[in-house]
Design a protein around this nucleic acid. Structure first.
Lengths: 232, 232
DNA sequence: TTCGTATATTACCCATCGGTAATAAAAAGT
DNA sequence: ACTTTTTATTACCGATGGGTAATATACGAA
C-alpha cells in the first residue's frame, strides 16, 4: 500500500535492511511467487530453500514462519493454479451454451492458464514430491478438470454441436495439447498468450465440430483470431 | 539365448547367487531397462542407485562397471528412445507420400513410442538432471523431432493435402497431445497402444486435412482403425 | 519502560545418497 | 597351475540440503 518500494514486477516485500512491515499474507504470497518461479526455472529438486530465501532477502529458517515444509510450498503453488482453473470452469458452466461453445471457452481459459507460472505448476510439478495426503487432493482436482473436458465433449455430441467421437481419447488429446503449452511457452516470446489460446480453440475443435464456424466460402478456412503473424 | 532364466519380461541377468555369466552388453541393457522403469515409476530423484542395483540382485558399486554416473544412466535411457524415434522418422521420410500421409505416419509411430518406457523417458525426464553436454544433445534431438512435424505440415500445405494453418502452433498442438500420452498411458489399461495411435492420427488431422479420408456418406465419420472399442 | 508476540538470525543436526577405495572372487588367457 | 583381467563386494567418504534449537530484534499494547 505504501510506496516505499515501487519496483515493477513481483518484488520482495523484505527490503534489504529497512521497513519490512507488510501483512503476513502478502509475505506468504511473495514466498509462493518466488518459489514457483524458481521451481519452474531450476526444477523442484534443483531449487533449495536457501535459493528461495536468498531471493527474498531473508534466510531459510524465516520461511518456516509461513510454511511447514518444502513440499507444502510446492503444494500451495499447485493449489493456487488449481483454484484458478476451477473458477474458470465454474464460470463456463454457469454461462451455458452448447457443448462446443463451452469446450472452446474451456480451451481458451485453460490455454491462458498454461502461460502463467501457477498454471504451469499444474502440469510440470511432480505429484510424487507431495505428501500422500496432498497427492490425493491433487489427483482428485486433476480428475475434475479432465471431467470438465469430457462433460463438454459428451454434451456437445448430445446437443449436436460436436461430431460423435471417442470422448475419452478426444479429451486426452485436447488436454495434452494444452498441457504441453506449459512446457514450451515463454513470456515475451514470439507468441502472445491470447493468440495461442484462440488458435488452439479453433485448431483443436475443427476436427470435432459438426460444422466449421468459418463460412465455407471462397478460400480455405483459417483461424479468425486477432494478431496471428506466424508461419507464412 | 540359453534358457537358464526364462522369466517373461525384462529380468535381471544376475541370478541371486549363481551363474552370472552374461555378455557385458546384455547387462548394460538390463541396467537401463530396470533404471528407466524405476525412474518412470518413482521419479529420477525418488530412485536411488541402490534401488536399481537391488532389483538387479547386485550392489550399487557394481553399476559403476557399466556407467560412470547416475545421470549417464538417465541420458542413455533417453538416447535409446530418441534413437528409435529417429529411425521411424527416417523410414517415413524414405517412404514418400503427401505431407498429410507422412504426418499421419509420424503421429502413429510417435504415439506408439509414447506407450513404451523408453518413449516416455523422452518427455518425462527432466533435461536439467543431465550434464550440460548431454543436455545440448537432447535439446538438439528434440528440435529435430519438432522439425519433422513442422516439415510434414508445411509440405502438406504446399502439396494441398493439409489446409493452410499456423505451422508452428499446429505442430506444437499435435506434439503436445502425443507427448501427453507418455504421462497417462498405462500398459494393460483399457486402451491398446495401436488403438490410441490410430485414433489420434484421425482425430488430430481431421481438423487439418482439406478433405476427410472418411467417405461423407450416411453415418457420421468415425475412426477407421482396427479394434476401437472405447466410449459408446 | 516493560511485557508479549511475531518474526528474523546464527549455528547446528543429521539422514540421504552419489560416488570411491580397497579388496575379494571369478573368468579368461597362457 | 599361474597370472591377468574383469567384475563383484564391503566399508567408507563427503557434500548437500531439509529441518530444528536457541536466541536476538522489532512491533504493538499497556
Amino acid at each position: 500500500m505504501d510506496g516505499s518500494a515501487s519496483s515493477p514486477t513481483g518484488q520482495s516485500p523484505w527490503m534489504p535492511f529497512e521497513s519490512r512491515r507488510r501483512a503476513r499474507d502478502e509475505k506468504r504470497e511473495a514466498v509462493l511467487r518466488t518459489a514457483v518461479a524458481l521451481f519452474l526455472d531450476q526444477g523442484y529438486h534443483g531449487t533449495t530453500l536457501n535459493h528461495v530465501a536468498e531471493r527474498l532477502n531473508i534466510t531459510k529458517p524465516a520461511l518456516y514462519n509461513y510454511f511447514r515444509s518444502k513440499d507444502e510450498i510446492l503444494y500451495e503453488c499447485w493449489a493456487i493454479g488449481a483454484e484458478r482453473v476451477d473458477e474458470r470452469i465454474d464460470e463456463i458452466a454457469a454461462a451455458g451454451g452448447t457443448g462446443l461453445q463451452k469446450l472452446r471457452k474451456l480451451i481458451i481459459g485453460y490455454a491462458e492458464m498454461m502461460t502463467t507460472d501457477y498454471g504451469k505448476s499444474l502440469v510440470r510439478f511432480d505429484v510424487r514430491d507431495l505428501t500422500e495426503h496432498n497427492r490425493k487432493i491433487v489427483r482428485l482436482a486433476k480428475k475434475n478438470i479432465d471431467r470438465a473436458f469430457r462433460d463438454y465433449i459428451g454434451q456437445g455430441i448430445r446437443d449436436g454441436s460436436i461430431r460423435p467421437c471417442d470422448v475419452k481419447l478426444s479429451a486426452f488429446a485436447i488436454a495434452g495439447a494444452l498441457n504441453w503449452i506449459g512446457h514450451w511457452y515463454m513470456p515475451n516470446g514470439a507468441l502472445e498468450a491470447e493468440a495461442i489460446a484462440g488458435e488452439f480453440a479453433i485448431r483443436l475443435t475443427e476436427g470435432l465440430a459438426v460444422k466449421s464456424t468459418r463460412k465455407k466460402a471462397g478460400k480455405p478456412p483459417v483461424g479468425k483470431c486477432k494478431s496471428r503473424g506466424v508461419s507464412r
